[in-house]
Each structure stands twice: as C-alpha cells, then as structure tokens.
Design a protein around this nucleic acid. Structure first.
Lengths: 109, 109
DNA sequence: TTATAATATGAACACATGCTAATATAAGCA
DNA sequence: TGCTTATATTAGCATGTGTTCATATTATAA
C-alpha cells in the first residue's frame, strides 16, 4: 500500500505533533464529562446566567461556576456581564458541532 | 428568536436523556486520552498487531493491550487473529470521523 | 508434551478529576 | 457606608484513570 493514499483530504496521515495531540485530547476531555455536556447542551439554545444553569440542571452554583471556568479556559464558552449577573453562551462552533453530531448519532441509534 | 429555528437539523433541543448522555460522554472520554488518540490515529491507515502498535508508538505491550481492550469494549476497534497475532483495526466510522475532524481543526489553526 | 511467541490480565501505585462546603470577591443600591 | 445579590475561589475529600510489573493465557510448532 502506498503512503498518503487516502481520499478524504482530512488529516489522514499527518504525523501527530505534541501540540496537536494536546489540543485534541483537551477538547475531547472537555466533552467527556456529563455535567459539561449538559451545560453546553443547555447553551445550544441561548445564553444563561450561572444561577439559571444551576437551577435548570439541578446543580450547585459552585459546581456550575467551576465547570464554566474550565470551559472558558478552553474558550468553549464566553460571558457577558449585566450588573452582578454573568450570562454565558457557547463560543466554539466547531466543538458545538462535534457535540451536536455525537448527540444526534447516539440519540438515533 | 423562535424556537427550533436552527438550520442544521441536528439534535438541537431534544432533551438529553440519561442514556444518550452516558453514551456521548463515554465516546468523548474514549477520545480524551493522548495514548488512545495516538492508537486510533495509527489505525487510520490500516490494521496493526499489538506489538506493532507498541513499537510504533513507543509504548509497553501491556499499556497497548489495556487501551485496546478499552477501545474494544466501546466497539471503537475490532481485531482479527492470525496465529498468535491479533491485528487491530478501527470499527466505528463516526468516531473516526470525529477524530479526523478535530485533528484537522487543531492542526490548521 | 515442552518450548516459544504474542497477547491478556490483575494488583498496585501515582496522579487527575469532579463535587462540596465555606468563604471571598464584585457590583449595585439604600 | 453597609447590605444584598450573583459569582468566583479555595481546600478537602472521594473516586476515577493510566501506567507498570509480574504473571497468566492462548496458539503454534518442534
């Protein structure tokens, strides 16, 4: 078999450098926790405040805040301040699409 | 903005039932480890034996075997026996595509 | 059967992860 | 200023995860 014989044009045989490997694993790790999935899934629709997320998903404020910091560090969500309230929304279309695809795939199987 | 106004047709507002949540998080968890990513990435090309994988990626035979069992439990890889040798290959196009997409995205950014 | 090669398994360990309670910070208002 | 609301942070704990060494299993061949 010849090298580089694939047809999709999507990163087939490129060697995985350390940085890419790190980014990719971090990305999937972010999506590998049920709580974070539920938060991101909620944010599919529109922005929510921290407390709104906590109420909606029956989680502690502290838990939500921690996970939002995690997601924000990876630039998967952003926020907007209004007085003392912070509204969070998603901030990475690619990752949101990964999640949508996978939910869809799991749901219809 | 009206409800259900999205254009992708991909699972927007469906409620996340426990089972879907579990499957999705398991799937991403599988892709959330550098070693498993490297193994799956190697298997993009073609099948490899356990020892071949270990040599290629500079991992212990035991480590590779453990991770392959993990991936096999999730039906992300399959194997084929030839004498005492087991050849592993990927077995989930959807997940492989997720990985390809994400590597591609991370690599060209 | 015995020996050998390839792979799988089990136990132990270090480390990472996620949640919680308590507290701190920040912004708005009386 | 002091009070309230909303969010962030810190430390601690329990659980999960990935690797390793040692050993077991499986299949083949002499």
């Amino acid at each position: 078999m010849g090298e580089y014989s694939d047809n999709t044009g999507i990163g087939e045989n490129e060697d995985l450098d350390e940085e890419t490997l790190f980014v990719v694993s971090q990305t999937f790790k972010a999506l590998g926790d049920p709580t974070r999935i539920r938060i991101l899934h909620l944010l599919f629709q529109h922005e929510y405040s921290v407390n709104q997320i906590a109420e909606n998903l029956h989680l502690r404020q502290s838990t939500v805040s921690h996970q939002l910091r995690f997601l924000k560090n990876l630039r998967l969500v952003k926020n907007r301040r209004e007085g003392t309230t912070l509204f969070y929304s998603h901030d990475d279309e690619h990752v949101i699409n990964l999640l949508k695809q996978t939910i869809d795939h799991a749901f219809h199987s």
